[in-house]
Simulated assay, not measured.
Amino acid sequence: ENIFLVFLGIIYSLEVPKSVVEIGCGTGKNTLLLSQIAMKVCAIDFSAQMIEKAKEKVRSANVVFLTEDITKQWTCGNESADLVTCNLVLEHIEDLSLIFSEASRVLVKGGYFFICELHPFKQYQGTKANFQRQQESIEIPAFVHHLSEFFNTAKLHGFLLEDFKEWWHEQDKNKPPRLVSILLRM
């Protein structure tokens, strides 16, 4: 089951976001879905190559792509978004505090911050993000963030927990969860 689609169902049951900031948009897989539900999407990634791939996939007039480092202040205005979202991004960020601070700054009161990450349990077992280039597996640097770190950092920046889920592949029901999703509200 696509977690992002489940998340979209949660958001639809609450209210449709007018303005979305997607941090770590990568190749635009989720950006495409976001462009179909929001009036405006700001998709951010540090990699110009990823942004170019995303632009090929997403040609919606309501999407703006920005190449910038999300570990520094974002160019988004204060209280300019109803939703900030990231998918498999925060494991690559050492210090989460600035991310939560920026999400808090950018969100309107009552706005949502949706996080979906590799579950720390998988990381404890040695699972690491990687991609294939030709026949070589390239490991991407990652940092383990315990669940308490997500919750404590969120609380520090004024967020309230709206929803929390752990996700397994169907064949892995008796193993540690693969992913974790957290929906926070400002």
Rank of each mutant, 00 (worst) to 15 (best):
N2H: 12
F4E: 13
I11F: 05
S13Q: 04
S13M: 08
L14E: 04
S19I: 09
S19K: 15
V20D: 01
V20Q: 01
E22D: 05
I23Q: 00
G24P: 00
N30R: 07
L33R: 08
L34F: 06
K40S: 10
K40C: 09
I44M: 04
D45F: 02
S47M: 07
Q49S: 12
Q49T: 06
M50I: 01
M50N: 00
I51N: 01
I51E: 09
I51P: 00
A54L: 07
A54F: 02
K55T: 08
K55E: 15
E56S: 03
E56V: 01
V58P: 04
R59Y: 02
A61D: 14
N62K: 14
V63T: 13
V63W: 11
V63G: 12
L66W: 10
Q73D: 07
W74L: 15
T75P: 08
C76H: 15
C76A: 15
G77W: 14
G77L: 15
N78W: 11
S80W: 03
L83A: 11
L83K: 11
C86N: 15
L88T: 02
V89D: 07
L90H: 01
L90A: 05
I93V: 11
D95I: 04
L98I: 03
S101V: 05
E102S: 04
R105I: 03
V106I: 12
L107G: 11
G110A: 10
Y112M: 08
F114I: 08
I115T: 06
I115M: 10
C116G: 05
H119A: 07
P120D: 12
P120F: 08
K122R: 14
K122C: 06
K122N: 07
Q123R: 14
Q125T: 06
Q125Y: 08
Q125H: 09
G126R: 08
G126D: 11
G126F: 12
N130Y: 14
Q132G: 07
I138L: 11
I138Q: 10
E139W: 09
E139F: 14
A142M: 07
F143I: 06
F143N: 05
V144H: 08
H145F: 10
H146V: 12
L147I: 13
E149C: 05
F150N: 09
F150I: 07
F151Q: 03
T153C: 14
T153M: 10
L156D: 02
H157Q: 05
G158K: 06
E162H: 04
D163V: 06
K165N: 14
W167C: 12
W168N: 11
H169D: 11
D172K: 02
D172N: 12
N174K: 10
P176N: 12
R178H: 12
S181P: 04
I182V: 09
I182D: 03
L183A: 13
M186Q: 15
